[in-house]
């Protein structure tokens, strides 16, 4: 079996052998349900498509949090427990290590996102929803999950404390979300650059209304790749210390 898949499989098993994985997924699902009830369903006059857009809007934040929370320990824990030596002395590349670690977090985020499907299904039962709208929203959520898991993996590669990695990842995510507002007060051409970097408003909002823009898909995939590249470089730099 490919080394990255082996690493991902072990990591997922470790998450669910302790209660951590269950607690994170259960807590986020609970939050998802509460927000769905109090935010998405708050106005009974809303059309089904608007309720669904609101669901994707609030679920994107929770998915982002899940990505950071599930990835912050990946490499930091290996460094703190000194088990990183097992991976670093195996005949595998740093890419395989980083990709396997990220894949484990992304797989759990995917499970979390998949488990939230009962909420939009409630809208389907009581209203009318286009399957394309549902698919685009979930594609957006998965892209957010992929990017935030990669951010967490990167932050986890530069520290041996998972809490520090979690804080760094959250700050990084917040900075990228708030670049949208910063772009509004920045002068050209910086405003365009900041607007493009915007994690949420520029790229995710179209997914909530059923639109899939290629540039948004490219943005999230590029961000994921850049964060994984950063993690790979951080891992490689350890050998030179």
């Amino acid at each position: 079996m490919n080394a990255a898949l082996l690493i991902a499989r072990r990591e997922i098993a470790a998450q669910f052998q302790s209660v951590i994985g269950y607690v994170i997924v259960a807590a986020l699902l609970l939050l998802d349900g509460l927000l769905f009830h109090s935010f998405a369903m708050s106005d009974s006059k809303d059309l089904s498509s608007k309720v669904l857009a609101k669901f994707f809007y609030m679920s994107s934040g929770i998915t982002g949090a899940a990505g950071i929370l599930l990835s912050m320990r990946l490499l930091a824990e290996e460094s703190r427990e000194k088990t990183i030596v097992l991976l670093a002395t195996a005949p595998i590349s740093d890419w395989q290590i980083v990709f396997g670690k990220w894949l484990s977090a992304f797989a759990v985020v995917t499970v979390f996102v998949a488990l939230s499907i009962y909420l939009p299904l409630l809208i389907v039962v009581h209203g009318s929803v286009h399957p394309g709208h549902l698919a685009s929203g979930y594609l957006g959520l998965l892209l957010i999950g992929a990017a935030t898991s990669a951010m967490g993996t990167f932050c986890s590669s530069i520290t041996s404390h998972q809490l520090v990695a979690g804080v760094l990842g959250s700050v990084l995510l917040l900075v990228m979300v708030t670049t949208w507002w910063t772009a509004k007060v920045a002068a050209p051409p910086l405003d365009d650059v900041l607007a493009y970097m915007s994690f949420y408003d520029k790229h995710f909002l179209p997914f909530t209304t059923g639109e899939v823009h290629t540039r948004a898909v490219v943005y999230y995939l590029s961000l994921t790749f850049l964060c994984l590249l950063g993690a790979r470089l951080a891992l490689g730099a350890r050998r030179w210390r």
Binding site: R10, A14, S18, E81, K82, T83, I84, V85, L86
Partner: peptide, 10 residues
């Protein structure tokens, strides 16, 4: 290594 690198849950 001096401190054996092990995954205690396995």
């Amino acid at each position: 290594p001096e401190e054996p690198p092990l995954y205690p849950e396995m």
